[in-house]
Design a protein around this nucleic acid. Sequence first.
DNA 1: GCTTGACCTCAAGTTGACTTGAAGTTGCAT
DNA 2: ATGCAACTTCAAGTCAACTTGAGGTCAAGC
Lengths: 146, 146
Amino acid sequence: MNLIDIGVLSKASGVATSTLRYYEEIGLIKSIARNGLRRQYHRDTLVQLALISLGKSAGFSLEEIGSMFDKDRKPNLPRPTLSERADELDRQARRLKTLSNMLRHVAECPAPSHLECFKFQKLLRAACPTEAARDVLRHAVKGSDA
Amino acid sequence: MNLIDIGVLSKASGVATSTLRYYEEIGLIKSIARNGLRRQYHRDTLVQLALISLGKSAGFSLEEIGSMFDKDRKPNLPRPTLSERADELDRQARRLKTLSNMLRHVAECPAPSHLECFKFQKLLRAACPTEAARDVLRHAVKGSDA
DNA sequence: GCTTGACCTCAAGTTGACTTGAAGTTGCAT
DNA sequence: ATGCAACTTCAAGTCAACTTGAGGTCAAGC
């Protein structure tokens, strides 16, 4: 039997039943039968949920995730889009790594203020979104108050 | 002069003025003076905003970000917490990398269905949150329908 | 045959992070 | 001195992603 009950799917996937119903409502997954009132899902849905969870943790919205698959649950993104998304993910991964380095550094650095630590400054500068911010940062370090 | 107008801060940081006011309302940043009615911020706020943006992109809530600093805007997390957070970030970074690899692979793989591609299976399995899901995945591949 | 618990529907509530709108004020350039 | 863009407050609105609640149905074990 390839059909599984919503409760089983919920347990196996770690996704609440209310969430599964919600996902179905928005068309992200679908149940393929009913046993009485009860939804029955195809076993593959479990795999699909793994992909959804992965996509979510990568910062995609449910809508974006939905748009990555066609109605047969096959990925259907054009190649350029795929590479773009991959690049984006890589950038994001690097941002995370920067922050993690920063945190580890803060945990160890003995400098009285982190802004006085060259390494911290460097990490922070790398994290600045605008040139203006990087600039302020550069001057914030040398120039003192007033 | 170390004071900057909200508009200037907004432009330099790329954060909308309404958002700056909102951040101030929830105590995440503070203005230190007024010019008439207008808020004036310390230049350092720009650095702080860079940190906030970094924290956000790392998936922290504004509340969590706020709790990382004491009232003088110095980081004030206990070391073990810092390392924990760093570990968490590293894990997340790896998840992102997995997904990006997956997307790149999908862009290139010639297999008719991705589930038939060993490499894809492996990546997907790595992404599964539960053992049950990994298990289904393993069998989904060998066993066919019905 | 009756209870129980897991499901059902549908509407409404929640949370986080903002944005928008209305109505008023102010600094600065002309 | 006047116009106006950029600010101000405060309340309300929005969006995604769920969760909760009320009231109902069903199937299986005792």
